[in-house]
């Protein structure tokens, strides 16, 4: 049952890591990571804080763009180039195809993010000579990886019924919304202002939509003054949430894809 999934995933990785547009994004991100230490001078803030914030910011943005660009074209390209027919005429179920494609996307994403993480750590170590902080930064990147995998699953699901360009903005929009969900929710809870229906809506949205903010754990890393209790269990829960939501997205995608005329 998993053999075709792995075979398709493998082929997908091979193709993804050769896509020019992704490589260009990766290249630019890496370049920025390398020159990031010099950009810190523009800012009035402590150099380490800016450096960390910027490096993580670069990785997050680049990864999000890669995750979306990588996945929105995945299914449409297969159809357009008719490879999907050669594959589906083999003993491969559609859901296996989709799962293989997604797995491949995540693996490719992992590879690219690893590369950026390596560059980031190297630069950080060269400039700050602080291995324990570098490891903490890697923790954040690991959380981003789960976040981006979730984003990829959203884009994948949407790509089963929407054209790539629309999907690009839809997924991107969902990412933004999913990123502000927590802060919005927070503000509403704390300010006491805002109508009760607004709060209800925020609550509803944060239950339904993928909550990308869950993985934005960089604040205490950038400003490391506070101690966080039972952080490990949060990481595990966040990972579990990601897996659940990814499963939801993929199963939904599979159900739609199963019915789709290709």
């Amino acid at each position: 049952m998993f053999r075709p999934i792995f075979a398709i995933a493998n082929a997908t990785v091979g193709e993804a890591i050769r896509r020019k547009v992704l490589l260009i994004i990766l290249f630019i991100a890496t370049l920025f990571l390398i020159i990031a230490p010099n950009l810190g001078m523009l800012s009035a803030r402590s150099e380490t804080v800016v450096l960390k914030s910027m490096m993580l910011g670069i990785i997050q943005i680049a990864s999000a763009v890669i995750a979306i660009v990588l996945t929105v074209y995945m299914l449409p390209n297969e159809v357009e180039r008719r490879t999907i027919y050669t594959i589906l005429s083999k003993p491969v179920m559609r859901w296996q195809f989709l799962a293989g494609k997604y797995l491949g996307a995540v693996l490719a994403l992992g590879l690219m993010m690893s590369l950026m993480a390596v560059v980031m750590s190297a630069m950080f170590l060269v400039i700050k000579q602080n291995p324990s902080e570098a490891i903490k930064l890697l923790q954040a990147v690991a959380m981003y990886f789960v976040q981006m995998s979730l984003l990829a699953s959203v884009a994948m699901c949407i790509s089963t019924f929407v054209a790539p360009l629309v999907n690009f903005f839809l997924s991107g929009g969902l990412f933004l919304v999913g990123t502000v969900l927590n802060p919005v929710f927070d503000t509403m809870q704390k300010s006491g202002s805002g109508a009760s229906w607004g709060k209800g809506l925020a609550q509803l949205l944060s239950v339904i939509l993928p909550n990308f903010a869950t993985y934005n754990i960089q604040n205490p890393l950038i400003n490391p003054q506070q101690q966080i209790q039972s952080e490990a269990s949060y990481y595990i829960n966040a990972f579990g949430y990601g897996v659940m939501y990814i499963a939801i997205m993929l199963i939904t995608g599979m159900l739609i894809f199963e019915k789709k005329e290709v």
């Binding site: 929710f185 754990i217 960089q218 604040n219 506070q226 949060y234 829960n237």
Partner: peptide, 10 residues
């Protein structure tokens, strides 16, 4: 997740 995030990461 939401409460923990609000407490520690927001």
């Amino acid at each position: 997740l939401q409460p923990f995030w609000s407490k520690n990461y927001s």
